[in-house]
Amino acid sequence: MENRTHISVQDLNVHFRSEHVLKDINLSIPDRKITAIIGPSGCGKTTLLRSFNRLIDSTEGVRVSGRVLVDDENILDPKAEVTHIRKKMGLLLQKPYPLPMSIYDNVAYGPRIHGIRERRRLDEIVERFLKKASLWDEVRERLSQPASALSLGQQQRLCLARGLAVEPAIILGDEPTSALDPQSSQRIEATFTELKRDYTIVIVTHILRQARRLADHVIFLYLGELVEQGPAWDFFNNPKQPMTREYIKGLIS
């Protein structure tokens, strides 16, 4: 089965004030696979991820050039409409940030914004996506309670459900398990593996073992440059670049 490319990045350069954060990045992210972006901290992983849904727009003093094609359309085009781009992609941050409202309203927030008003449809959406994020059984009795009352791990799954509820095609995760306890991390990882049947998943991680466990495709960044990318098995077992070899062995971090 040939991989279809879902996101492709061409000559992406990002400057932050006088700093050159991403340098001539060219890469492609396969459809319905888990892609892991790895590299030491400060290498531009998060910036790369945030350029996919144009959240870098809201950072102070940023200049971006190049093209990011999603389904063959350049989302960096200044005329592109950001809210529609972002609707296509769910985002999970390092720390879960539930919105200041009830569990139910958190999941219903996106659908409501995009025009769904009928209570019955919303009920159905909330249930479906809480199930998808494997949270439904834990919260079905207390949907009207504030989301901030959930545990961190539950909050992160709630954020996942919230992101899925706008029916994106892509899930972006920025070290989505780094603030969680091992058990919660495991649940999120398991959920990801299930979700990749329907979604393209891109996660940033600095945990090599996590990338090994989860990823089908790996992108390795170092100091703002793309060092190597490829299928996970090749990447870990037969790296082409010496730098990759050293990183995998843990010699550079």
């Binding site: 849904n53 959240l55 809201s58 950001v82 809210t83 529609h84 972002r86 609707k87 992609m89 769910g90 985002l91 941050l93 720390k95 940030y97 919105l99 200041p100 409202m101 927030y109 996106g110 914004i113 995009h114 954020c159 919230r162 992101g163 706008v166 972006l172």
Partner: peptide, 27 residues
Amino acid sequence: VPHELLEASYALGATRWETALKVVVRQ
């Protein structure tokens, strides 16, 4: 108000106005 909260809302495709009214004011 943590900026991540605004981003969480933007990431769902909300406009700034919707984010301001439904998330920022509420928080």
